[in-house]
């Protein structure tokens, strides 16, 4: 049975904007993206919203619902009180284009700055073999759907625009970790560049990225902190540093 749902939706562009009140029907089992589509169909024909799969797997409908970064297609309307007004805004860490759509190209630029997987010289396609226990760690990171909720909630760039130059963000720390933990990747300077070029030291591990991840990737515990520890191995641990000089290799592999 349909009931009425009160929404406040941010409308505007990069020059101006504000929250607009709207009341819309909501049926049992519907998610926030459903009611946004109903608003678009019935009341605000020009409402801009980015969406695609409606199944929590494409990462397109990232927005902020009652101030929390979430996927609209995975947020049940039933999770709110009946008399509650739900506030929906675009992601607040990125430049707004129109209404609920933001310009997330920052993330694509950062993705291009990370060197790709580099296999051993001479290894031909189809040759690599890995054991399951070596694959498992990076498989967790491959679940990422690039919704950029972690990037959006990370205060390093959300609250400090100037850090965008020097900070890759949690989504790309899991990419770096995935490659640095890969048994066949031969690029050995990923720790150094993570710290010096991608701003790993700016992260103060407040775990917001982990809290908002819709894929429940343990970004901080399994990627960022292990990378910080690997950086400590190289830069702040004199015993390990000395060992690596004597043994002429990066560390225990």
């Amino acid at each position: 049975m349909a009931r009425k749902l009160k929404l406040r939706i941010w409308r505007g562009d990069s020059t101006s904007g504000g929250l607009k009140d709207v009341t819309v029907d909501v049926n049992e089992g519907e998610v926030v993206l459903d009611v946004i589509h109903r608003v678009q169909a019935e009341q605000m024909g020009d409402l801009a919203v980015r969406w695609n799969c409606k199944a929590g797997k494409c990462g397109s409908c990232s927005m902020e619902i009652n101030g929390k970064p979430r996927l609209a297609c995975m947020t049940q309307c039933a999770s709110f009180d009946e008399d509650e007004t739900i506030t929906i805004t675009p992601l607040r860490a990125f430049p707004v284009i129109k209404d609920l759509v933001t310009d997330v190209s920052f993330n694509y630029k950062k993705a291009m700055e990370i060197p790709a997987f580099e296999p051993p010289v001479g290894m031909k396609p189809g040759e690599p073999r890995m054991e399951q226990i070596d694959v498992e760690r990076s498989q967790e990171f491959r679940k990422c759907i690039e919704c950029f909720l972690c990037q959006n909630t990370c205060h390093v760039i959300r609250d400090h625009e100037e850090n965008k130059k020097s900070f890759a963000g949690p989504r790309f720390f899991i990419r770096i970790a995935e490659l640095d933990m890969h048994p066949l990747d031969i690029l050995r300077n990923r720790k150094k560049t993570a710290q010096e070029e991608h701003g790993l030291g700016l992260c103060n591990i407040t775990k917001c990225c982990t809290e908002v991840c819709p894929e429940h990737i343990r970004i901080t515990d399994n990627a960022i902190i292990p990378m910080k520890e690997r950086v400590v191995d190289q830069k702040y641990d004199p015993v390990r540093w000395l060992g690596s000089k004597i043994r002429k290799r990066e560390g225990i592999l």
């Binding site: 101006s16 504000g18 101030g67 607040r92 860490a93 933001t102 959300r158 609250d159 400090h160």
Partner: peptide
Amino acid sequence: NGVFSSSRAQISEKTLR
């Protein structure tokens, strides 16, 4: 700066949580 930067959605509250 931050969420109040000119290019971002103009919202006066520090959080809407």
